[in-house]
C-alpha cells in the first residue's frame, strides 16, 4: 500500500464528440467521468463493467493513445501526455480482446513480435533481434517453427500468445489487458490466463485486467474497480468485493454471473429492462433508474466515492453508504 503508484489516473474525464447523423447536432459523449485509479508495482487491477461503461477508454488513456479532456494520467508521477510516445511504449503495452484483429494479417509472427524492437532500435543487430524474438516465443509457449507463419494460419489461442509476446518484447513493467480472453474458447481461455499469471510472476509485471467476466477477474486481480456509465462505482480488494459487494450494481453483476451449478435457475437482479442512453445519462446517480434500492435523493445528487467500511475500498452509493454508517 505504501509503494508509489506506477500508473495513476487522477480525476480523469474523457469526452468524445459523437456525430448523430445528417444535419443533427454533434453531441458530447462523456466516456469517462471523474475516474481516479492507481496501479502499484506488481499489482493486478481488475476493471469490470458492461459495454459502454468506459473501461476500454480507460485502457486507451492508460496507454497514452488518447488524451484526457480533464485530469491527469501519470506514469510514475509524470503526466503521460508530456512524455515521448516511445518512452510510454517502453513501459506500458496492451493486449487486446480480439486476436483476429490485433495482428496484422500481412505480417509473419516474427515481424509482428519484432516490430517493437525495430521501432525502438532496441536490438543491437538483426541477430540480436532474432534471438530476442525467439526467446519471447519460447516464453509465451509458441513453437519456434511458427515464427514464419502468418496470423491466418494460427488458432485463436496461438494468436493471443503472439499478441502477448509483442506486448512483452520491450519488457514493459505494465501490461494493460483489455478483455484478453473474451474472444477465446473456454479451454483456450484457461491456457492464456495461466500464461498471463506465469508471466506476471516471472517478470514482476503490474497488470490492468479489464473484463466483463467477473469469474475471470476474481481469478487474476488483487484489486477490482467496478465501472458504470463512465464512473467507478465501487473499488476494493478482490477478496472484499467478491465476498461482500456494497454497490447495488456490483451486487447485480455478481448475481448475474451464471456459475455451472445446475438447478439454481436464472437469478433475478431486478434491474428493469431499460439501459440508459450514454449520450443522455440520468441525473444524480446514473444507476438509479435501474436500481432496486433507489430513493428520491438518488435521482437528485450523484453520490461521491466514500469508504466502504469493512476494510479498505470505496463505494459511490447513497444507500450503501447509509448501510455502512448504520453498521457498527
Amino acid at each position: 500500500m505504501t509503494a508509489a503508484p506506477l500508473l495513476e489516473l487522477r480525476d480523469v474525464r474523457c469526452d468524445f464528440s459523437v456525430e448523430r447523423g445528417f444535419l443533427r447536432a454533434r453531441r458530447t459523449l462523456r466516456a469517462v467521468d471523474g475516474v481516479s485509479l492507481a496501479l502499484r508495482p506488481g499489482e493486478t487491477l481488475g476493471i469490470v463493467g458492461e459495454s459502454g461503461c468506459g473501461k476500454s477508454t480507460v485502457a486507451n488513456l492508460m496507454l497514452g493513445l488518447i488524451r484526457p479532456s480533464a485530469g491527469a494520467v501519470l506514469l510514475s508521477g509524470t503526466p503521460i501526455d508530456r512524455m515521448d510516445r516511445r518512452a510510454v511504449a517502453q513501459r506500458v503495452q496492451p493486449v487486446f480482446q480480439d486476436p483476429y484483429a490485433s495482428l496484422n494479417p500481412r505480417k509473419t509472427v516474427r515481424a509482428i513480435v519484432g516490430l517493437p524492437l525495430s521501432v525502438h532500435g532496441a536490438a543491437a543487430d538483426p541477430g540480436d533481434a532474432a534471438r530476442r524474438v525467439s526467446a519471447m516465443l519460447d516464453m509465451v509457449g509458441l513453437p519456434r517453427h511458427l515464427a514464419d507463419s502468418y496470423p491466418g494460419e494460427l488458432s485463436g489461442g496461438q494468436r493471443q500468445r503472439v499478441a502477448i509476446a509483442r506486448a512483452l518484447v520491450l519488457r514493459p513493467n505494465i501490461v494493460v489487458c483489455d478483455e484478453p480472453t473474451s474472444a477465446l474458447d473456454v479451454s483456450v481461455q484457461a491456457q492464456i490466463l495461466n500464461l498471463l499469471l506465469d508471466l506476471r510472476r516471472e517478470l514482476g509485471l503490474a497488470m490492468v485486467f479489464i473484463s466483463h467476466n467477473l469469474a475471470v477477474v476474481e481469478h487474476v486481480a488483487q484489486r477490482v474497480a467496478v465501472m458504470y456509465l463512465g464512473r467507478v462505482v465501487e473499488e476494493a480488494t478482490a477478496a472484499a468485493l467478491f465476498r461482500a459487494a456494497r454497490h447495488p450494481y456490483t451486487q447485480a453483476l455478481l448475481l448475474s454471473v451464471l456459475t455451472p451449478e445446475p438447478g439454481r435457475g436464472i437469478p433475478d437482479a431486478r434491474l428493469g429492462a431499460g439501459f440508459p442512453d450514454p449520450l443522455a445519462p440520468p441525473p444524480g446517480c446514473s444507476f438509479h433508474p435501474r436500481c432496486p434500492l433507489a430513493e428520491a435523493r438518488c435521482a437528485a445528487t450523484a453520490p461521491a466515492l466514500a469508504g466502504r467500511g469493512e476494510g479498505e475500498g470505496t463505494v459511490a452509493c447513497h444507500v450503501a453508504g447509509a448501510l455502512n454508517s448504520a453498521m457498527p
Binding site: 458492461e50 459495454s51 466483463h212 467476466n213 467477473l214 447485480a252 453483476l253 448475481l255 448475474s256 454471473v257 451464471l258 436464472i266 437469478p267 433475478d268 437482479a269 434491474l271 429492462a273 439501459f275
Partner: peptide, 9 residues
Amino acid sequence: DVTIQAQIL
C-alpha cells in the same frame, strides 16, 4: 452484457 443476459435467459 451479463446483467442483460440473465434477464433474457
